[in-house]
Design a protein around this nucleic acid. Structure first.
Lengths: 239, 239
DNA sequence: CGTTGGGTTGACAATTGTCAATGGCCGTGG
DNA sequence: CCACGGCCATTGACAATTGTCAACCCAACG
């Protein structure tokens, strides 16, 4: 086996995969990124990566695992604002003395690293900006989901979004992907109760729209499902 | 009357007021802003400021009137993602070839201007960054509203947010502010139907929480209402 | 083995939507 | 000046969706 083959056999980290898809990365950017990825931090499930209202201790680039931005109402009701997947970045801001607008909690085991500084490498800055714009687009999608879709549509739409996002970091297997969360967590993301999510997931399976078993979610016919929930894929740059 | 008094009598434009509250503006920034504000663009109600999926023609700084980001589902259901008020900025991005993530539509007569370029004046850049962070915080608040609050709470929470935001540009009168939109529009922002919004507004009036008549919304006791809906005010920078 | 966390189910309640009709207000045109 | 039309707010009766509560099952795990 030649050296180059050996090299290509070493898997590209999902986070690097994602960022290099958002903007072409030059060698300097890739080197900086690799160095950052080489110093990972590990978090157990249900740990805070950030706490709403506190100064942002440090930005995170998610390397593996799932996390979520969360908001908790006074009486304990919980709403997940969006999921954070490998390659996602949080806590990078252009302004002084930023305060975390929401808490971030790990849903699974999560590894993160400190992303290379903003303003150091133009190629990375561009990737950061696009990542941030995508982030915002997903928030907008979440609003439309919660405001105007019924339970069935919310679930389908979210699964399509997750599939689309995981594809960016090559974490899908065809029409399936790993969904390492509980129905309760899903309910908190969808603005529903766990009981109702459970019923709708069963209905979706009966209807052939979604199949979820042993942590693996399959979307038999993404196109059909997208049509059914009235969904357009999310783009943020031209071309 | 002295010159300085005459000067202070000339009203500061709401948009400038807001930006200078977000970050202290030096003379250069104020001059650039004044020049921009001096070239206003007028839009009639129900006109598109931006169309989802199209290249962003130009950024806008809202000078007067209300607009909204909107998303429309295939079957015509409509969800407002957030309101745009005087001093709000849209369409300023750090990345190349940005595409509008949502349409923006005027709700009333609106005047806008082209904000001074990103990267030209540090003080303004800081204001832009904070404005953008606030924008994002309001999106997050909207998600929690739609996902986990009932109709009554959504209305109260949104009114508190609007009051808070309008205060930044000095557009409130004590506990009241001008609410120049229809119940239908409100419903599209709250993920409800106009009929239900109507009923809840009446209930709110009976309960003494909100009084809306002839376009003027009054919150008799903001603190009590905030407690009732379990709301914290939104901050984005320390101190 | 007992315990625990998740998933599943059923009966019922609460919230919100739908449909259809009515009334007020206001600007336009005759 | 008055009639008309249009938009918006309001109301009532009813339906659909979603939540609540409580119980049960099962697999994983110490």
């Amino acid at each position: 086996m030649s050296i180059s083959l050996a090299r290509s056999a070493r898997p590209i980290p999902p986070a690097r995969h994602r960022l290099s898809r958002l903007a072409p990365l030059d060698n300097a950017a890739i080197a900086a990124l690799n160095e950052a990825i080489g110093r990972p931090q590990l978090f157990r499930p249900r740990r805070d990566l950030m706490v709403e209202g506190r100064d942002i201790a440090g930005p995170h680039l998610i390397l593996s695992g799932w996390a979520a931005r969360v908001r908790i109402l006074l009486d304990g009701r919980r709403q997940f604002l969006n999921f954070l997947l490998p390659g996602d970045i949080v806590g990078l801001y252009h302004h002084q003395r930023p305060v975390a607008p929401t808490s971030i909690i790990t849903l699974t085991e999560v590894t993160t690293c400190v992303p290379p500084d903003l303003g150091a490498l133009p190629a990375l800055d561009e990737a950061y900006a696009i990542s941030h714009a995508l982030d915002e687009a997903y928030l907008l999608a979440q609003i439309a989901r919660l405001g105007r879709m019924n339970a069935m549509e919310r679930i389908g739409d979210l699964m399509l979004e997750l599939h689309e996002r995981l594809e960016l970091s090559e974490l899908t297997h065809g029409r399936s992907f790993d969904l390492p969360i509980t129905q309760e967590t899903l309910a908190d993301a969808l603005g529903l109760t766990a009981v109702h999510v459970n019923r709708m997931l069963q209905a979706a399976r009966r209807g052939g729209d979604l199949i979820w078993s042993s942590r693996s979610m399959t979307i038999p016919d993404p196109q059909a499902l997208a049509r059914k929930v009235g969904r357009a894929s999310i783009r943020v740059t031209a071309g």
